[in-house]
């Protein structure tokens, strides 16, 4: 199994992602430059966080036009695992691989903190291992998830809400919502469940030496998606 970690000008979580995949999840992983137009040889994609193209125009808007994103779209459609974290989530929304958009945090501040997440969907490969509220770092200025009323309804009805911000005992309320996201949404899935986009950073907590390895519960979704779709062991 080999995962592509996409690098754009302005990516800054790419090294964390690669380290996490190689050393903690223990799968093969390589950087792929955004100008590539072929992901042959790779089984999944990690779109890391950062400030691609200086967030010009809108977060992720320019990166979404990169040639490699056409391949990421193909991977998403073929049922392969695609994980977009933070700016990576914004890029997946800008390409239309996931619905919705991310707006500036409601308090107009960049937030660097640890928050609690509750897995809403209990059966997707990305969320099934998260059975109690888990503390995950966030670091973003524009994480307020927004979608049209119809889109939100469809996400809720189709079990595409992966994670919600919650209190330490799992209560979903306004106080636990760091950025004003609709319905406390922290991460969403595509209809097939093979693509996950989320603002919090599971790749930053995949080793006990970093304070927690709970992020592995999520990042190991790469293996579960591939096991389901392609029979990988």
């Amino acid at each position: 199994m080999k995962i592509a970690v996409i690098q754009f000008p302005g990516s800054n979580c790419d090294q964390d992602a690669l380290w996490s995949l190689r050393n903690d999840l223990k799968v093969q992983a390589e950087y792929v430059w955004h100008g590539e137009s072929n992901l042959a040889g790779f089984d999944g994609v990690f779109v890391p966080g950062g400030f691609t193209y200086g967030d010009y125009l809108r977060c992720g808007a320019i990166a979404a036009q990169s040639s490699v994103m056409a391949e990421v779209k193909r991977f998403a459609e073929e049922g392969r695992p695609v994980l977009g974290v933070c700016n990576g989530f914004q890029i997946l929304c800008e390409t239309g691989i996931l619905p919705g958009a991310l707006l500036p945090n409601i308090n107009e501040r960049f937030i660097c903190d640890s928050i609690f997440l509750k897995a809403e969907n209990k059966i997707s490969p990305w969320t099934e291992k998260v059975d109690s509220p888990v503390a995950v770092p966030i670091a973003h200025g524009e994480g307020r998830f927004i979608a049209s009323e119809d889109e939100i309804k469809s996400l809720e009805n189709n079990n595409q809400v992966a994670f919600r911000y919650c209190s330490n005992n799992g209560e979903i309320n306004g106080a636990a919502n760091p950025n004003g996201s609709m319905n406390n949404i922290a991460g969403i899935l595509n209809p097939g469940g093979n693509v996950l986009g989320m603002m919090p950073h599971p790749e930053r907590i995949t080793s006990k030496i970093l304070g927690s390895d709970a992020g592995l519960l999520i990042v190991s979704g790469f293996q579960r998606v591939l096991a389901t779709v392609y029979g990988f062991k």
Partner: peptide
């Protein structure tokens, strides 16, 4: 539609 504006927002 393609780049300058995001129709979602």
């Amino acid at each position: 539609d393609k780049l300058l504006a995001n129709p979602v927002i």
